[in-house]
Amino acid sequence: MKKYILFSVIFIALGALNAVNAQDDIFGEWKCTNDEGKVNSIVKIYQKDDGEVCGKVVRITKEEDRDKLCTACKGDLKNKPIEGLQLMHGLRKDGNEYSGGEIIHPKSGKEYKVKIWVDENDPDKLKVRGYLAFFYKTMTWERAE
Protein backbone atom coordinates (compact mmCIF):
# COMPACT_ATOMS: atom_id res chain seq x y z
CA MET A 1 0.00 0.00 0.00
CA LYS A 2 2.85 2.39 0.85
CA LYS A 3 4.35 1.79 -2.60
CA TYR A 4 1.12 2.86 -4.27
CA ILE A 5 0.90 6.02 -2.19
CA LEU A 6 4.54 6.88 -2.86
CA PHE A 7 4.07 6.22 -6.58
CA SER A 8 0.96 8.43 -6.63
CA VAL A 9 2.76 11.29 -4.85
CA ILE A 10 5.71 11.08 -7.27
CA PHE A 11 3.38 10.93 -10.28
CA ILE A 12 1.43 14.01 -9.12
CA ALA A 13 4.64 15.91 -8.35
CA LEU A 14 6.06 15.16 -11.81
CA GLY A 15 2.80 16.26 -13.42
CA ALA A 16 2.88 19.55 -11.52
CA LEU A 17 6.52 20.09 -12.50
CA ASN A 18 5.67 19.52 -16.17
CA ALA A 19 2.81 22.02 -15.93
CA VAL A 20 5.17 24.65 -14.50
CA ASN A 21 7.74 23.98 -17.21
CA ALA A 22 5.08 24.18 -19.95
CA GLN A 23 3.98 27.60 -18.69
CA ASP A 24 7.58 28.80 -18.79
CA ASP A 25 8.35 27.40 -22.23
CA ILE A 26 8.33 30.69 -24.14
CA PHE A 27 11.64 29.90 -25.80
CA GLY A 28 11.83 28.75 -29.38
CA GLU A 29 10.33 29.78 -32.68
CA TRP A 30 6.84 31.27 -33.05
CA LYS A 31 4.63 32.07 -36.05
CA CYS A 32 3.74 35.77 -36.02
CA THR A 33 0.41 36.41 -37.72
CA ASN A 34 -1.28 39.55 -39.02
CA ASP A 35 -4.86 40.66 -38.28
CA GLU A 36 -6.18 38.36 -41.04
CA GLY A 37 -4.47 35.34 -39.46
CA LYS A 38 -1.78 34.96 -42.15
CA VAL A 39 1.72 34.10 -40.96
CA ASN A 40 4.05 37.03 -41.71
CA SER A 41 7.21 35.82 -40.03
CA ILE A 42 8.88 33.41 -37.67
CA VAL A 43 10.23 35.00 -34.48
CA LYS A 44 12.72 33.26 -32.22
CA ILE A 45 12.41 33.98 -28.48
CA TYR A 46 15.71 33.43 -26.66
CA GLN A 47 17.50 34.33 -23.45
CA LYS A 48 20.86 36.09 -23.25
CA ASP A 49 23.52 35.14 -20.72
CA ASP A 50 22.47 38.00 -18.42
CA GLY A 51 18.88 36.68 -18.28
CA GLU A 52 17.39 39.24 -20.68
CA VAL A 53 14.76 37.73 -23.00
CA CYS A 54 14.71 38.91 -26.61
CA GLY A 55 12.93 38.14 -29.86
CA LYS A 56 14.44 38.11 -33.33
CA VAL A 57 12.85 37.75 -36.77
CA VAL A 58 14.45 34.61 -38.21
CA ARG A 59 12.28 34.31 -41.34
CA ILE A 60 9.90 36.44 -43.38
CA THR A 61 7.37 34.08 -44.96
CA LYS A 62 6.80 35.95 -48.24
CA GLU A 63 9.92 35.52 -50.33
CA GLU A 64 9.45 38.88 -52.06
CA ASP A 65 9.47 40.64 -48.66
CA ARG A 66 12.66 39.05 -47.32
CA ASP A 67 14.89 41.93 -48.44
CA LYS A 68 12.71 44.67 -46.91
CA LEU A 69 14.39 47.17 -44.63
CA CYS A 70 13.08 48.76 -41.46
CA THR A 71 12.93 52.22 -43.04
CA ALA A 72 10.54 53.56 -40.37
CA CYS A 73 12.75 52.40 -37.48
CA LYS A 74 14.83 54.90 -35.53
CA GLY A 75 18.41 54.85 -34.29
CA ASP A 76 20.62 51.83 -34.92
CA LEU A 77 17.74 49.84 -36.45
CA LYS A 78 17.06 52.40 -39.22
CA ASN A 79 17.38 50.76 -42.65
CA LYS A 80 18.36 47.38 -41.19
CA PRO A 81 16.89 44.24 -42.81
CA ILE A 82 13.69 43.12 -41.09
CA GLU A 83 14.72 39.49 -41.48
CA GLY A 84 17.29 39.12 -38.70
CA LEU A 85 16.01 42.16 -36.76
CA GLN A 86 15.90 41.94 -32.98
CA LEU A 87 12.40 43.32 -32.54
CA MET A 88 11.89 42.51 -28.87
CA HIS A 89 14.27 43.14 -25.98
CA GLY A 90 14.52 43.84 -22.28
CA LEU A 91 12.05 41.23 -21.02
CA ARG A 92 12.54 39.71 -17.58
CA LYS A 93 10.63 36.94 -15.83
CA ASP A 94 7.80 38.19 -13.61
CA GLY A 95 5.77 35.27 -12.26
CA ASN A 96 4.26 33.42 -15.24
CA GLU A 97 4.96 36.34 -17.57
CA TYR A 98 7.94 38.12 -19.06
CA SER A 99 7.60 41.90 -18.94
CA GLY A 100 9.51 45.17 -18.77
CA GLY A 101 10.67 45.07 -22.36
CA GLU A 102 9.94 46.75 -25.65
CA ILE A 103 8.80 45.54 -29.04
CA ILE A 104 9.19 47.31 -32.38
CA HIS A 105 6.60 47.17 -35.14
CA PRO A 106 8.87 46.98 -38.22
CA LYS A 107 6.35 48.47 -40.65
CA SER A 108 5.64 51.59 -38.59
CA GLY A 109 8.88 51.79 -36.60
CA LYS A 110 6.85 52.40 -33.46
CA GLU A 111 8.06 51.00 -30.15
CA TYR A 112 5.72 49.62 -27.51
CA LYS A 113 6.10 48.25 -24.00
CA VAL A 114 5.59 44.48 -24.16
CA LYS A 115 4.83 41.47 -22.03
CA ILE A 116 4.55 37.85 -23.15
CA TRP A 117 3.25 34.63 -21.65
CA VAL A 118 2.31 31.13 -22.71
CA ASP A 119 -1.45 30.55 -22.94
CA GLU A 120 -2.43 28.57 -19.84
CA ASN A 121 -4.82 26.41 -21.89
CA ASP A 122 -2.50 25.75 -24.83
CA PRO A 123 1.30 25.68 -24.40
CA ASP A 124 1.69 26.03 -28.18
CA LYS A 125 0.25 29.57 -28.10
CA LEU A 126 2.17 32.62 -26.98
CA LYS A 127 0.36 35.80 -25.96
CA VAL A 128 2.21 38.98 -26.96
CA ARG A 129 0.76 42.20 -25.57
CA GLY A 130 2.01 45.60 -26.74
CA TYR A 131 1.20 48.71 -24.70
CA LEU A 132 1.00 52.39 -25.52
CA ALA A 133 -0.06 54.30 -22.40
CA PHE A 134 -3.44 52.82 -21.37
CA PHE A 135 -4.08 51.15 -24.71
CA TYR A 136 -2.93 47.67 -25.60
CA LYS A 137 -3.29 44.96 -28.19
CA THR A 138 -2.73 41.27 -27.57
CA MET A 139 -1.62 39.00 -30.39
CA THR A 140 -1.50 35.21 -30.30
CA TRP A 141 1.50 33.54 -31.89
CA GLU A 142 1.61 29.81 -32.52
CA ARG A 143 4.61 27.61 -31.93
CA ALA A 144 6.48 26.86 -35.16
CA GLU A 145 7.28 23.22 -35.87
Rank of each mutant, 00 (worst) to 15 (best):
E52C: 00
E52R: 00
A144V: 00
V128N: 05
L69D: 13
Y98T: 01
G28P: 05
K56M: 06
A16C: 09
K80A: 14
G28M: 04
K56I: 08
I10F: 07
A72D: 13
M139Y: 10
V20F: 10
I26S: 08
K78M: 12
Q47P: 04
K93C: 12
T71I: 14
C32L: 13
A19H: 09
N18M: 12
K2V: 03
Y112T: 11
K56C: 06
K125C: 05
G15T: 10
K110R: 15
I12S: 04
K3D: 14
D65C: 02
W117T: 06
G101H: 02
C70A: 12
N96D: 12
S41W: 04
V114G: 11
K78V: 10
Y46M: 08
N34K: 07
Y98K: 01
P81D: 13
K38M: 12
L6Y: 11
E142L: 05
A13N: 05
S41C: 05
G37M: 03
L126N: 03
V53M: 05
E111H: 06
W117D: 08
F11K: 00
K93A: 10
V114I: 10
G109I: 03
I116G: 04
K78T: 13
G28R: 02
D49F: 03
V20R: 07
G75S: 12
L132C: 05
W141E: 04
K68H: 07
D25E: 05
N34P: 10
N18S: 15
I42Y: 05
K113R: 06
V128R: 02
F27V: 01
I103C: 04
K80C: 11
L6F: 11
D65R: 09
A22S: 15
G37V: 02
I10V: 06
A72H: 09
G101W: 01
H89Q: 09
K113L: 07
M1T: 14
E102H: 02
E64W: 09
V39A: 14
G84N: 11
M88K: 07
Y4M: 15
V20K: 09
L14A: 12
D25L: 00
E111G: 07
E29R: 08
I103R: 05
A133V: 13
G55L: 03
E142C: 00
Q47S: 01
W141F: 03
K93W: 14
K3N: 14
E120H: 09
N96A: 06
M88A: 08
N18W: 01
G28S: 11
G51A: 00
